[in-house]
C-alpha cells in the first residue's frame, strides 16, 4: 500500500447504477481522505443519496469499484464487507430510529448486537454517547417524544457509539430551517474533530457545506463534475460548477423576493 493509498479511507471508481430506464449514476468517482470531512453536493434527484447508499453497501452498484482502507468491497468479499460495516456508520436522512425502543436502547442496539461487551459496559458507553450529544436527560424517552434536532443528535449518538472510522451522512439537514441547518453542520464538524472520524456528507446546502467541509465534490449527470477544496469550488470557473452556483444564487434571490413580498403583505394587513 502506497502513502497515498494510506491517506485514502474510501474510494469509488466508475460507479454505475440504474433503476429500470432511469440512469442515476454513470461513472461516478469519489475519493474520501482519512480524517477529512467531505461534502457531496448536487441538485435534488441528482443521485447523491444513491451514491451514498452504494458506498454504504445498502444498494449494490451495477458496475464500478469501491475500496475501503485499500480493500475492495466486492459482492463476494464477505469478510471485507463485514469489516467495513464494523468500522462504518450511516446516518439516514430520516434518522431511522427504532420508535419502539427508548433513546438508550436505540444507542445500545449496535453494541448489543455486534459486540461481546457486558451489559454494564454497553449501558455505560451508551449513556456516555448520549451525554456527549447532550441527551443525558432523555435516555428513557422514545424518539417520538424528542424534537427533530434531538432525534438527529440521537441518531448521531447511535452512529458514533461503536467508535466508527467513517460516518456517512445522508442529507442530515433535509427539512430543517436555516438555524437548525447551521446547528446540525456545526454539530457534525464539532464531533468529527472531537471523535476523529472521517465524514462524508451528502447535501444540497452549499454555504454550510463549504464552511464545514475539507473537501467538496459536485455530482452532476450521474458523475462527479468537480472534486476539490471549498476554496477551489468557490473560485472555480468550470461551467458545471458555475451553473450549480448560479442556480443556487438565483434560487436564493427568488426566495428572498418572495419572502420580502410576504413580509410586506403581512405588515400591510
Amino acid at each position: 500500500m502506497t502513502d497515498s493509498d494510506e491517506k485514502v479511507l474510501l474510494q469509488a471508481k466508475g460507479l454505475h447504477k440504474r433503476f429500470g430506464a432511469n440512469v442515476v449514476l454513470s461513472g461516478a468517482d469519489l475519493t474520501v481522505p482519512r480524517g477529512s470531512l467531505v461534502a457531496v453536493l448536487g441538485r435534488s434527484g441528482s443521485g447523491k443519496s444513491v451514491l451514498l447508499k452504494c458506498l454504504a453497501d445498502v444498494v449494490q452498484p451495477d458496475a464500478g469499484v469501491i475500496t475501503f482502507d485499500g480493500k475492495e468491497l466486492r459482492r463476494d468479499a464477505a469478510a471485507a464487507r463485514a469489516d467495513f460495516r464494523r468500522r462504518c456508520s450511516f446516518l439516514f436522512q430520516s434518522n431511522a430510529l427504532f420508535d419502539s425502543l427508548t433513546a438508550l436502547e436505540n444507542v445500545a442496539l449496535p453494541l448489543e448486537q455486534t459486540t461481546d461487551l457486558k451489559t454494564k459496559e454497553i449501558t455505560e458507553r451508551s449513556l456516555e454517547a448520549l451525554r456527549q450529544l447532550e441527551l443525558e436527560g432523555h435516555s428513557e424517552s422514545y424518539p417520538s417524544q424528542l424534537s427533530g434536532g434531538m432525534q438527529k443528535r440521537l441518531a448521531l449518538a447511535r452512529a458514533i457509539v461503536t467508535r466508527p472510522e467513517l460516518v456517512l451522512f445522508d442529507e442530515p439537514t433535509a427539512g430543517l430551517d436555516p438555524l437548525r441547518r447551521n446547528a446540525v453542520f456545526t454539530m457534525i464538524a464539532k464531533y468529527q474533530r472531537q471523535f476523529g472520524f472521517t465524514a462524508l456528507i451528502v447535501t444540497h446546502d452549499v454555504p454550510e457545506a463549504l464552511l464545514a467541509s475539507d473537501r467538496v465534490a459536485l455530482l452532476s449527470d450521474g458523475r462527479m463534475g468537480f472534486e476539490g477544496t471549498p476554496e477551489e469550488f468557490a473560485a472555480s470557473q468550470d461551467p458545471v460548477v458555475t451553473s450549480f452556483r448560479d442556480s443556487e444564487a438565483s434560487l436564493t434571490s427568488q426566495l428572498q423576493s418572495i419572502r420580502r413580498g410576504e413580509t410586506f403583505q403581512s405588515e400591510d394587513s
Binding site: S89, F98, T114
Partner: peptide, 13 residues
C-alpha cells in the same frame, strides 16, 4: 419504509 431495516443492515445486524 422508514429505513429502520436498512439501518440494521448498515449497523452489521
Amino acid at each position: 419504509n422508514s429505513e429502520q431495516i436498512a439501518a440494521l443492515e448498515t449497523m452489521g445486524i
